[in-house]
Amino acid sequence: MNDPHSPHPAPVHLPPGEDHDDEMIGTLLSRRHALRLLGLGGGAAALTAGGVLAQRGAGGTSAGSGAARLPGCVVRPAMTEGPYFVDGEPRRSDLRKDSQTGRLSPGVPLKLVFVTSRVAAGGCTPRAGVLVDVWHCDALGTYSGVAGNSGDALRGSQVTDAQGRASFTTIYPGWYPGRAVHIHFKLRPLNAAGQATGEFTSQLFFPESVNAAVFARAPYSQKGKADTPNAQDAIYRNGGSQLLLSVKGDPVGGYTATFDVGLNLG
């Protein structure tokens, strides 16, 4: 059984026939490793080639024993992009409309805000110039632009502003067999010439209580009950709890969620 706190988790093996967009990559760092990477433990270490993905906590510092404490940053896991990523997605904040047909994807509204920061020993500061790609399935579990599907609905990208923010208006994603409800994202810092200097890819997940409330409504309800809760998802079990969104709202008026991350790449 995998230990999610191990710096070298065992690879994920999916059942035959499950293509799944994903399997775990990278590592989950222990607290001791995170302290070393941030220069707060015994002997600072260089950042890994893959960078460090972290969350900025509202309290400024995280609880812990000893003199060295994380400056409000918790290391996050990376996950593969899967087969449904399309590079060069349109730069836009509203992902609901297919730019080719003008058709809006039906579903419960979701506003998703990324806030990117640079992590240092003293804390986290806003990081501008990070290209944020987002892509996910529609209310019935289908991705646009791949596997014979046309269009570019529920796909898009933005560059973070001076406050490190990039906001997307989309819909709550549906589900498809073998996977928990999720949204894919990719972060790529850009240099002055607009070229990516690195990338970090992972996924966001949702509380089961919110999934149930959303899927009881049309058009989600026509697909039936989701077959894979978070606890049974092979990807979620390898660190998904660190990527679980805290959403506010309801299935009538829609939801909002902010994902606050620190990125030391590029």
Results as ranks from 00 to 15, higher is better:
residue 79 M to G: 07
residue 13 H to F: 14
residue 77 P to L: 07
residue 154 L to F: 04
residue 246 S to K: 13
residue 45 A to Q: 15
residue 164 G to M: 09
residue 64 G to L: 05
residue 265 L to W: 00
residue 167 S to R: 08
residue 100 Q to D: 07
residue 226 A to Q: 08
residue 28 L to R: 12
residue 20 H to L: 14
residue 122 G to A: 14
residue 157 S to K: 04
residue 226 A to P: 15
residue 182 H to Q: 10
residue 123 G to S: 03
residue 196 A to M: 05
residue 124 C to A: 15
residue 63 A to P: 03
residue 22 D to P: 03
residue 200 F to V: 11
residue 63 A to F: 07
residue 26 G to H: 02
residue 208 E to L: 07
residue 187 L to G: 04
residue 253 G to Y: 01
residue 201 T to R: 04
residue 140 L to I: 04
residue 207 P to W: 11
residue 128 A to R: 14
residue 103 R to F: 04
residue 184 H to C: 08
residue 218 A to I: 01
residue 148 G to R: 00
residue 248 K to N: 12
residue 240 G to F: 03
residue 81 E to L: 08
residue 257 A to C: 10
residue 135 W to V: 05
residue 68 A to E: 13
residue 97 K to R: 12
residue 42 G to H: 07
residue 259 F to K: 09
residue 108 V to T: 14
residue 185 F to S: 04
residue 247 V to H: 01
residue 48 T to C: 01
residue 128 A to K: 14
residue 151 G to R: 01
residue 188 R to P: 02
residue 140 L to F: 00
residue 109 P to H: 06
residue 182 H to E: 03
residue 26 G to I: 01
residue 209 S to W: 15
residue 31 R to V: 15
residue 29 L to T: 03
residue 248 K to M: 10
residue 166 A to F: 13
residue 259 F to W: 15
residue 120 A to I: 02
residue 63 A to D: 15
residue 9 P to D: 13
residue 30 S to G: 12
residue 24 M to T: 14
residue 204 L to A: 05
residue 128 A to M: 03
residue 163 Q to C: 01
residue 110 L to C: 08
